[in-house]
Amino acid sequence: MVEPSQRDVDRALNTSMQMFERVQLGEVSAIEPRRPTRILLALDGSSQDDTSTGVAAALAKRSNLQVSVLAACPDSQQAADRAIGRIGSGNVLPSPGDDDAFDQILAAAESSQAEMILLPCPFGRDFEKIGPDSAGTVIDVLMARSPVPLLVVRKPHEIAGTPFQHIALPLVGENRAAHDAAAWAAGLVAPGGRIDLLLVLEDEFHEHVLNLLESIDPDAKATPEALSAALRKAHVRLHRALQKAATAGHFDYSLRVEKEPEATEFLDQPLESLSLVVGALDRPDQLTEGYVHHCVRFSRQPVLVVPYG
């Protein structure tokens, strides 16, 4: 038999050993799905309100959900009344007055004990004017301060036939919000739907690691394959916990590890194919913060931002 080269054998052996080593993970419990029982729907009177209301209505239809609606902008009172009509139940919260929109929203979330805030992005500004470069001040502040997840509806698009049929959970590096984000994804995914845990090999991150390693040892090589293996290892418990949740919750689940361009392409699917992106926001961590902000700004899909810290 013609032998493979020593380099090929080394690489194949290492890869294979890493695969076996990383499954020595002991007992892993299934992710406990998190479903909101109370949400705050914040409206701004823009054309995006219809989509936000549609998402809230879809959520309310699936579970016993208490929706509080806040008209956080002067023009949004009528939209709030319409929203209640469309959702079929819920209450309109009184507007606290002249406070900034983000303060109003945070106060309303607290007073209504909302477990999730649903709002359009950019808030109170026209999306077409601001464009994809900015998510707006309100979203920025809420992402920095909100203790509960934000479901950000980015564009005035129609919601797909079955909301949350296919959810993507992209992660870059280690992330303390990952478990909570996975729990929310498992709770929101439609019956018979699908979740993809997407481990993203970020170009910049790869460069940093490579530079660091080379500064320690000039011969060291951090190949994309090695970093992919490291990412898989870092998230193997989350993967297994989601896998168990998928079996228990009867939804489909898969793990994907992609380099940044491929990951971006994957997330850029039309809404009919991918209905929600869940961003795990590990607040003091610049890498994950930057990535989630990027998702909010550029995603075609609504983005659920699940914070930690």
Partner: peptide
Amino acid sequence: MAEFDPWALVENRWV
């Protein structure tokens, strides 16, 4: 041996 969980090797059941 119980620490090894072979199912963690399955990234996509359908594949």
